[in-house]
Nucleic acid binder design. Structure first.
Lengths: 261, 261
DNA sequence: CTCCTTCAACGTACTCTGTACGGAATTATT
DNA sequence: AATAATTCCGTACAGAGTACGTTGAAGGAG
């Protein structure tokens, strides 16, 4: 199931602790720490969590396993991070910082495609990002930098501020679809002993009995064509390229003939 | 975290049990049942699960709670359904059967928009669909009917079979983005005691310290415009309408001047 | 009618999750 | 030196999915 964001914070009235954790490197260390030295750090906790998620998926990220990796006992992790929801916010902002933000020049088309490909690569590097509720992304420094970078690509085109927001939201939202399909297919290919072909052969008798051509004339035909072209029911990388071209066409048409300088 | 699909089936060599469960109404009752009568049914199990998911989200769907609703003990549920992953497949196909499949006439634009709106409404009715790995949807009767219905809307336009597949995949994939944002925002609005405005006011001092305008000139401006227009950081319904128009523009441009008879 | 096979239902148990709570140990401030 | 704060950890709880083995009911065979 989808992991929840850290919506309900600790405090009542005091600023969000998550926010302070997200911007921890800018806010400086808290002074006057009285108790024992911490034997680890927030960064180490987040790093361990990200590595776990990269290696074994988001399901593998548990407070106990993070503690193991750091040589701590489970409950000590809570001295670094208020809870798991907040930790996930920190993870998102952290890997957001890995995304390259090259200067975007060239045509509007190129700039939009560049943004989409950065996002695509990010999802491939950290597939667990797709298992996360990113509708309200954490307002951390890296996420914010990335957002600023995206918006600059559509600034000065004559779009209203609202339309700039809409365009980037559409573009980034689009990417997650094929990316999700891609990593799922990859997971399946690796984990399953059985290939798509074998599955199909095994279930062919039953499927033929079920999928009668009178009921499914079009999807039968299309499915067969896709199967022959991809040797699989779908090809997410292809879907990404196709969809990206269409989405960009739609955006460029909307921006109008003033194709961006 | 995302629920896994039922990828690893029970049998080795025998056809998928999930497949037989999905098509249970078409395959007829198994004959020669010897033991005690079942006191419930697969349909009742699936209905209970769907209702639970509708009422309290996918997290609330547990074998124990389903058993409770049916007056069974937890382990008895496993006599109807091999496991939770398979149950989720059954849930998806079941609610897929609720989607209206009206005859699609009118322009290509209208037909594509119609498909997208059906999908949109489906997500609003059953938000938990968005928490599910739908990359490889279950090959059940209702999902298959729906897929056939979608493809027919782009048949006979001169598109190759592969392109038909790509177009529908793009369109349906697009919808899930704003739909996810919409239901998340809705959930937040209901569950959280604190409104967006209150959150903002509470964190304003910290945010002002953090979000300096030199670093975020564009996103600062855009974010403010969005906030004033929506009274929220975003408006998913608006994003849906905007994105839908752009995506359809892109598709129609691709299909070419032969705008579909 | 009796017996045997078959299968639904269930009780128990195991591992795993997030985290509330309280105590012990350690450190900086008073 | 006393105090206050804070880290770390042990214990515990409620909940998850489901493996395993037993019990009892019902249909088919003799």
């Amino acid at each position: 199931m989808l992991a929840r964001m850290a919506t309900e914070s600790t405090g009542r009235g005091e600023p969000d602790r998550t926010l302070r954790l997200l911007w921890r490197s800018h806010l400086g260390e808290p002074v006057g720490t009285r108790g024992p030295k911490q034997r680890s750090s927030v960064d180490e906790v987040v790093d361990a969590a990200v590595q776990l998620a990269d290696d074994e998926g988001l399901d593998a990220v548990s407070m106990r396993r993070i503690a193991d990796r750091l040589g701590l006992k489970p409950m000590s992790v809570y001295t670094y991070v208020p809870g798991k929801a907040e930790l996930i916010d920190l993870m998102v902002d952290q890997v957001s910082g890995e995304l390259p933000l090259p200067v975007l020049d060239g045509s509007l088309r190129d700039r939009l495609a560049g943004i989409a490909r950065v996002q695509w690569n990010g999802y491939l590097r950290h597939p667990w990002l797709l298992s996360i509720d990113t509708s309200r992304p954490p307002l951390g420094p890296n996420v914010s930098d990335h957002w600023e970078w995206c918006l600059r690509a559509v600034d000065g085109l004559g779009l209203t501020d609202l339309d700039m927001d809409r365009v980037i939201t559409l573009l980034l939202g689009f990417v997650s679809g094929p990316a999700r399909d891609y990593v799922d297919a990859e997971r399946l290919r690796v984990s399953s002993l059985e290939s798509d072909v074998e599955w199909w052969e095994r279930n062919a008798p039953l499927l033929e009995q079920i999928m009668d051509p009178e009921r499914y004339p079009v999807s039968g035909r299309v499915g067969q064509a896709a199967g022959e072209a991809y040797n699989a029911p779908a090809d997410p990388a292809d879907a990404f390229e196709f969809g990206l071209a269409r989405v960009i066409d739609g955006i460029v048409a909307y921006v109008g003939p003033a194709d961006g300088r």
